[in-house]
Nucleic acid binder design. Structure first.
Length: 326
DNA sequence: AACGGACCCAACCGCGTTTTG
DNA sequence: ACAAAACGCGGTTGGGTCCGT
């Protein structure tokens, strides 16, 4: 089934928009609102494709558009968000009020990509990987990232330094297997951890969790998410596990099934405080991971270490669900 | 001043997803 | 349930401008 072109291209203007065209488009939208792009050109008296009108409106004429002069702060945010999201320009733009995806994409391609490339002379094709090498975004040595036994991606190698500090766990769906817990609990940092409780006999004590024989443990503490940490995590870890789960953000359960993992993590960043929940209420799939910073001790290395130790102990010693949470 | 390459960015294009009938 | 339309996104293109020679 072929796809009908959005409009006949014959007799239509192309290329740069004139001031007159802009005025017509703006006036029409002011009077009738956005949408119905296919019909808009005719009704507005424009010899343009509807798609072109939409683009012109969204990227140029729409009220509140900021143009040019991307500040250092914005550039830094773009870099960070790009690390989080990759080339998800619309998502990135959504975090930069007044900026359009097109502008950010252009800015990245003309400014930042070059800069990233400069810091990554090996020349990876992966812009996300390249972002790792930005001087402002070196993985902090104070951060511990749990990387599971995921198949290395093409950018993992460039992260070997990070990975060397990583905690490796099993984190592939479905929830089977045994998680390997932190080798070193003493590192006072946020941590990505498998929420796992393994009984020595392989069973688990959770009721109604539906995880056939898999090990689960409950973790119901509020978590605060550190954006920079997430940046690092997203560079290093397969987050496909997030897709099917619900998140509870600031008390509201959100069905995240329709969102990509990165987007959902971004929600965490935005919401700042998040509790992880899943279909059985208290327990998490054994291979699910939680980016955790103790709400109580979020700013305290001691607090973080304490939480990490608690949860690690719960996982490593088959303690019960209650022991791991709260 | 003229030329040409590099750069920038608005606009286009194709395709996937969502909505509508 | 299905097809078509509409929408939205990310990659690419091409024209204008800048800058070095």
């Amino acid at each position: 089934m072929g796809r009908r072109p959005c409009c006949s291209k014959e007799g239509l203007n192309r290329g740069a928009w004139t001031a007159m065209e802009d005025t017509k488009l703006a006036d029409y939208i002011a009077a009738h609102g956005e949408g119905k792009w296919r019909d808009l050109p005719l009704k507005a008296g424009l010899k343009r494709c509807g798609k072109s009108c939409r683009l012109r409106w969204l990227n140029y004429l729409r009220p509140g558009i900021k143009r040019g002069n991307i500040t250092d702060d914005e550039a830094e945010l773009i870099i960070r968000l790009h690390k989080l999201l990759g080339n998800r320009w619309s998502l990135i733009a959504g975090r930069l009020p007044g900026r359009t995806d097109n502008e950010i994409k252009n800015f990245w391609n003309t400014n930042l990509r070059k800069k990233q490339h400069h810091h990554n002379p090996q020349g990876t094709q992966d812009p996300t990987a390249a972002a790792d090498h930005h001087e402002d975004h070196k993985p902090s040595s104070s951060k511990v990232v749990a990387i599971d036994n995921i198949t290395p991606t093409n950018h993992d190698q460039s992260r070997s330094d990070l990975s060397s500090k990583a905690i490796r766990t099993k984190a592939t769906r479905p929830c089977r297997g045994k998680a390997v817990f932190p080798h070193d609990h003493t590192v006072p940092s946020p941590i990505l951890m498998p929420a796992t409780r393994n009984n020595s006999d392989g069973s688990n004590d959770d009721q109604n969790c539906g995880h056939d024989g898999a090990s689960c443990f409950g973790l119901s503490c509020d978590l605060e998410i550190d954006e920079e940490l997430l940046s690092d995590l997203l560079q290093s870890t397969d987050f496909s596990w997030l897709i099917d789960d619900d998140l509870v953000i600031n008390g509201d359960r959100r069905d995240g099934g329709d969102k990509c993992p990165q987007e959902r993590l971004l929600e965490m960043v935005t919401a700042n405080t998040v509790a992880k929940d899943d279909d059985c209420g208290d327990c998490l799939d054994q291979d699910e991971m939680v980016v955790a910073r103790s709400a109580a001790g979020a700013t305290s290395a001691q607090g973080q270490t304490s939480l990490i130790a608690d949860v690690a102990a719960a996982a490593g010693t088959s303690s019960d669900a209650e022991g791991a949470g709260a």
